[in-house]
Simulated scan of single mutants.
Amino acid sequence: MNNQQNKNLNKFIKISLLGAIAVVLMYFDFPIPFLPFPWLKIDLSDIPALMGAFAFGPMAGVVIELLKNLLILIVKGTGTGFVGEIANFIVGISLVAPAAWVYHRNKSKKTALLGMLLGTLCIEIVGIIANVYFLVPAYGMKMATDEIINYVTIGLVPFNGIKAIMVCSLTYVLYKKVSLAIFKVDSNFDRVEKRKLKSI
């Protein structure tokens, strides 16, 4: 029982630390130069959330996404009437949760890549639905139908796609290197190679 409590405490500490790292990364946001919507800014705070989700399960990723947005509100406040933080949370979990769900069904390099592909598709779909039906109206922006179509096609779709690719690529590289050292779990990214070595 004591051993289980230690494991849970260790997990809680690591999830909290990942949340804190994510908050720091939120300060380093930047726009994509060729997009005509300057408020669409990329930050890499979803990387700690995706790493935590890969290590501890989809719910851990959701907790990290929630934690970072609550912490940023405490330390920085909101300049968007909470709309920006809600958007960050919704879009973040739409990438992180599906990716981790697929990966945890059978941990391997293949399922990690498939999960991140699913997460990329989800972030595109959820991003469009959330913006058109909730976030844009909540922010007080009034757009005609053609303006919404323009915003989605040359704004949201490329923005979320680029963000997902950056987050997933960096997570894949980093998680492979630190999964055992920091999270004490085997990523199984090299499982095929291990089987080949055993058969030689």
Rank of each mutant, 00 (worst) to 15 (best):
R105E: 11
L73Y: 09
A130M: 05
I154W: 00
T171M: 04
I123H: 00
V96C: 03
Y139F: 15
M141N: 14
K184T: 11
E124M: 14
L18Q: 03
A99I: 09
K11Y: 07
L9V: 11
F183N: 09
N6Y: 08
R105A: 13
L66A: 12
Y151C: 09
Y151D: 06
M141E: 15
D146T: 11
L50P: 00
N6I: 11
V126M: 07
I200R: 12
I15R: 02
D43K: 05
V83F: 00
Y103P: 07
S16H: 06
A144L: 13
L66F: 10
L40A: 01
G81E: 13
Q5W: 07
G52Y: 02
N160P: 00
V24Y: 03
F54D: 05
I154G: 00
E193K: 13
D29L: 03
F183K: 11
V173K: 11
S169L: 11
A60E: 08
L156Q: 01
K14A: 06
I42F: 05
G140K: 07
N10D: 06
W101Y: 15
D29M: 06
L66I: 12
K14H: 10
F34W: 06
Q5N: 13
S45K: 03
F134A: 14
I42T: 10
N150W: 10
L35P: 01
A164R: 00
L25G: 04
K176N: 12
A130L: 03
L95M: 12
K107M: 10
K184A: 13
P36S: 14
L121V: 15
F134I: 09
I86M: 15
L114K: 15
